[in-house]
Structure formats: structure tokens, C-alpha cells
Amino acid sequence: MNWFPQIGSGSIAQFPVSRGRQWRSIVNVMESGEQISLPDTSGGLIQWRLSYQELTNQEAANLNSLFQTSQGQFAPFTFLDPLANLLGWSESLAQPGWQCGVLTVSPGVNDPLGTQRASSIANGEGGNQSLSQSLSLAGSVVTCFSVWLRGDSATAVTLARDSAQIIAAVTSVWTRVYVSGSGTSGAEASTFSLEVPPGQTVDVWGLQVEAQPYPSKYKATGAASGIYEETYFAGDQLTLTDTAPGLSACDIQLISRV
């Protein structure tokens, strides 16, 4: 599967970016004038408008290469929503998708916003235990995995994407930590995990994975979304404009089937 390229900074898009979501319904108008409408769940799509400025030659070549490989609007590729938190159920750690092992997860804990949307995770075992979620993200994709942490007693946890990890200190003050970069070379999926030492309890909130090198504002999620494996160029023409020596600009429209 081909992936829409990240530009040199690791970002998918530059400002401005726009997203148009369309749902399709099957509508039946009865003789009486009554209208019955049902959702056509396989007919949804998202239209993207991306505008790039000051692309380097390599970045422009990457876009052009994908366009050539896709033969314009013919073949699909995977596009990552530049506005999304790619994790599913970011505030419901008991939902399928999260692997908690033998950690005890308690929701309804005070969070940095003053609401009760954080969770407490306790490790009562004798060894390290992990909270993790796997996503269909190739190892080559640069991501930022971030989370807010606090604990009643000082400790340290491991935040990881596959084998790339950082050790984060946990204090009584909410602190946001993140691990950034690409994953395991050649991997078809990536696992994002938070490892808690034995006998420790940590409050967590704002778990987020983004296809960019640094964290943006936290976005709460429901079911996982944002990885669109059936995305097409909306047209058969890609226009790259040279704006300065070694720099280009282009506007791209994509369509993701949802």
C-alpha cells in the first residue's frame, strides 16, 4: 500500500486545509408523499483540499511520485487525517482497541481541565505492565504520541511507539509528555504504549497520536478514525509551480472513501 507523503517537517498538510464530509442516504418517496430515508453506510466520502507552499525539490518529487504511481485518480493510497487524533476511544480505556493487560483502569478521575475525563491506571503486579493500542500505521510514518500524566507519588513511566521510547517522570502536577518519530522499519502497524512500573498508580488523560512531529491541542475521540486506506487524487492533473529556486507550490484535492 502506498502512503500519502509527509513533508520534510513530518507534517501531512500545511495551512490552510479543508475537509468536506458527505454522507449518502437512500431515499424512497412514497405515493402518499411520505419520505423514508436510510443511511447508505458504504457511500460516504471526505473531500480534502490541501495547499502547499515552499516545498523542496524532494518534497515535490515525493508528491509527484505518488501521483505517477497512482496513475492520477486511478489507484488508491492511504491518507492520514492531518486534523485527527488517530487513537480510538481516547477517554474510554476499557473499550476494545485498548490492551490493558492486568492493569486496573478506573475512569472518572479529575483531569487538567477540571472535569472528570481522566483515568487512573494501577499496576498491582510484580512486573511492568502496559496500556497499549495498535494502529495500522506503517513504520515509516512520523507520529507524535502524547499524554498528560500525574500521580500522587513520584514515579517514572515509559512512553513508547514500538521500540522507540522515552522515560517520563510523573509528579503530582499534570504534565504533558510525548514520544515522536518513525516506528519500526518495514512494519505494517505501530503499537503505542504506556508502561507502568510495579506497584504504581498513574492518572492519564489526553492520549493522542498525530501524524506530525509535535503535539497539538488534545482532541477527544470515539471509535478510531483518521486512517483512510482508500483515498484517491480527485483529478488526473497535478500542477507544481516553481516559486523560487528549489521551491515549489501546489494545490491538491483528494477524495477518501469512508
Partner: peptide
């Protein structure tokens, strides 16, 4: 059946 959203900055 449509929702438009954009981020200019």
C-alpha cells in the same frame, strides 16, 4: 448529508 470544516491557521 454534508459537513464542511477547515483550518486556515
Amino acid at each position: 448529508g454534508s459537513l464542511a470544516a477547515g483550518l486556515k491557521g
